[in-house]
């Protein structure tokens, strides 16, 4: 077992366990922490897969932006206690069963695949910033610009929804 393999297994183990803990923790704060670790381990995967740029972006976006957003909201709403009631037992069992079925079906369906690595692969550094940048601003220029609309929408929307109402009466 090479080092890489050990890394892979270790990271995968951490990822899955942390994800599971995220799901199972009663306290949302703990969930968030586990999620953070989970994201970090995924970042490790990215490194392992030679996607250096994505590694960085991932850390920034998820660990930096998204997790902060989550935690802020949690704090804002003062939900850091174990307030969450469980769903009724039947719903939880249903949830577990359904998810397990989905997982099993997905895994068994995927296991039918016969992906074999092509021989000539692995020569170019596809994850390098330079390479990605070129692609992003050439081929994917339009989606790249277009995604700004998405972000703009989200921004405007978030503001629209969260802004406190000022009483305006026009009659």
């Amino acid at each position: 077992m090479s080092l890489v393999e050990i890394c892979f297994w270790a990271l995968s183990f951490v990822t899955l366990v942390c994800a599971l803990m995220t799901v199972l923790s009663k306290n949302p704060i703990f969930s968030a922490i586990y999620l953070l670790i989970c994201f970090a381990s995924i970042a490790g995967h990215y490194l392992l897969l030679n996607a250096q740029f994505l590694f960085i972006v991932h850390i920034i976006v998820y660990s930096g932006a998204i997790m902060v957003l989550f935690l802020t909201t949690l704090m804002l709403m003062n939900l850091n206690e174990e307030t969450e009631k469980h769903k009724p037992a039947i719903a939880r069992i249903g949830a577990v069963v359904a998810a397990c079925i989905l997982g099993l079906v997905l895994v068994s369906a995927i296991s039918k695949t016969a992906l074999v690595l092509p021989q000539n692969s692995g020569a170019v550094d596809i994850g390098a910033i330079k390479v990605l940048g070129k692609i992003l601003l050439n081929e994917y220029f339009y989606p790249f610009e277009f995604i700004s609309i998405l972000l703009l929408t989200a921004m405007v929307g978030a503001v629209l929804l969260t802004k406190k109402e000022h009483k305006i009466t026009i009659k």
């Binding site: 994917y140 339009y142 989606p143 277009f146 995604i147 609309i149 998405l150 929408t153 989200a154 405007v156 929307g157 629209l160 929804l161």
Partner: peptide, 20 residues
């Protein structure tokens, strides 16, 4: 990519509009 972004823009707009 365009397909996905398109769908997401539409959806996110609708999420917002539904809650206006």
């Amino acid at each position: 990519a365009m397909f996905y972004i398109g769908i997401e823009i539409l959806s996110i707009s609708f999420y917002i509009l539904a809650g206006t």
